[in-house]
Design a protein around this nucleic acid. Structure first.
Lengths: 251, 251
DNA sequence: AAATAACTTGTCCATTCGGGCATTATCTGC
DNA sequence: GCAGATAATGCCCGAATGGACAAGTTATTT
């Protein structure tokens, strides 16, 4: 086996397992531990992994891997959402997805649907869906990059959203109540959500039950502008009545 | 057997098996190892495979080659290039950066410069620079998301680039030669690079010495459209003369 | 603080690389 | 068809690379 090949396999192993020991690598490639150390030294030098005592670790920039693991944990909830969404979103549809922890899980669920076109401002959503085998086209909206949430925001994003007219807008919100409607805790994200609603034929809001009845700083839209709410469990009768009145479909 | 035929079979073998040794090839074609080495030298020169100690490897420029692997290549050369680039860019500048392993390393170097505005189609570049404490604004260009390289491409990207007019365009290319100019191995990336050049006052091309004199599928620009080439080491006298003639500054 | 594991550095040997040179095959123009 | 030119090939040798072993140093554990 050639050194290059070995190093690339080391890199792959580190990427997959997160952390590997010098000893294990030496056995696997049947070379001495010194050789492995030199390899790790080079790889660390070039900044693609991190050396630790006893082995090497993937650096957190490549959080995709651990990211997937976290996604896998929520498999059950994902399945529930996937089923509910699959009833709304059909193969071949075009949809907006905004940034949020819920929409991210949702993206994973959508990755199983064929021929989707997804337009999002979330880098993570784009990454999840881009990996899909299901012939999904992903448009990542451009704008000011916000590192914290790995998303783009700002006027440029709004501007680009306006170029599309899609079937569904799939949104995460911070709070919903019967009087005000949907709200977000971040101004920029609220603006993005607002724009997505304006250019979608059908608006789907994802919200776990805790968010119902609460308040947040920035308003996204009125209750009757929402077409569907996907919820993990049934909300109270009072809220259900309000939804009914606003002709919102509850899932 | 004709040399041409042999070379094409070597290329095929490398493509199939990923990696082959000089020894094996020499036996298979019943020629000396020197001949095989020469063949590999030529093939590597034209950029269709990669030489390694003891043989040759398929390069994974197009296929889903892990980006990390490319990061690990020529790490030292890229560090040198990054340092030189940091000397050109000044605090407060606005720059384009395209996608590439070299530009990614450079992004790390640029993260130390104050008050930059960076416009890029690379998610990774955005992540690296977004992390900086140096008051850097990052615009991520929107477009069709390509999962392999974590970048956006397509007409939307081109369209957005046209909205900017920046100080420097910092580009990675696959090959440069005196006759054709700069080339890329990916059509979409070549288009993006082209657009960036058109909307920048100063074009900087990053290239390690191996890329000089090579060829690649898609043309980016003529030599005289480049203002500066940042190289890890001095190219041959012949190439230097060509750069001189085209009034390209060499670093 | 001692014991142990892990890391670093230096040396040596085998393999591989690359250039120079001689030989042979192929091409080209007459 | 022939002579000269060009390219391809094989062999040799000094230089470079990779890997194992060993000795010394640093870090971790108990």
């Amino acid at each position: 086996m050639k050194p290059k090949q070995r190093r690339s396999q080391i890199l792959e192993a580190v990427g997959q397992q997160g952390e590997v020991s010098v000893e294990v690598l030496a056995q696997r490639f049947d070379v001495s531990v010194e050789t492995i150390r030199r390899d790790l030294g080079q790889l660390a030098e070039s900044g693609v992994l991190q050396k630790v005592h006893g082995g090497a670790r993937r650096l957190r920039l490549h959080a995709e891997g651990s990211f997937d693991e976290r996604m896998a944990e929520n498999a059950e909830a994902k399945q529930i959402i996937a089923k509910k969404l699959a009833a709304i979103v059909e193969p071949g549809d075009t949809i907006f997805i905004d940034t949020g922890s819920t929409t991210l899980i949702c993206a994973q669920a959508l990755a199983a649907i064929d021929r989707l076109t997804v337009i999002t401002n979330s880098v993570r959503v784009a990454q999840v869906l881009g990996k899909s085998e299901k012939n999904i086209t992903v448009y990542l909206l451009g704008g000011t990059f916000s590192h914290d949430n790995a998303e783009t925001v700002g006027p440029l994003v709004i501007d680009q959203i306006a170029r599309f007219q899609v079937d569904h807008a799939v949104l995460t919100v911070a709070a919903i109540n019967a009087d005000v409607g949907a709200m977000d805790s971040d101004f920029d994200e609220a603006q993005v959500a607002r724009a997505m609603i304006d250019h979608a034929n059908h608006t789907i809001v994802l919200a776990n039950v805790e968010k119902l009845g609460r308040n947040a700083a920035y308003r996204v839209c009125r209750l009757d502008e929402i077409n569907s709410i996907v919820c993990d469990q049934s909300p109270g009768a009072e809220f259900t009545a309000a939804l009914d009145w606003a002709k919102v479909e509850l899932r």
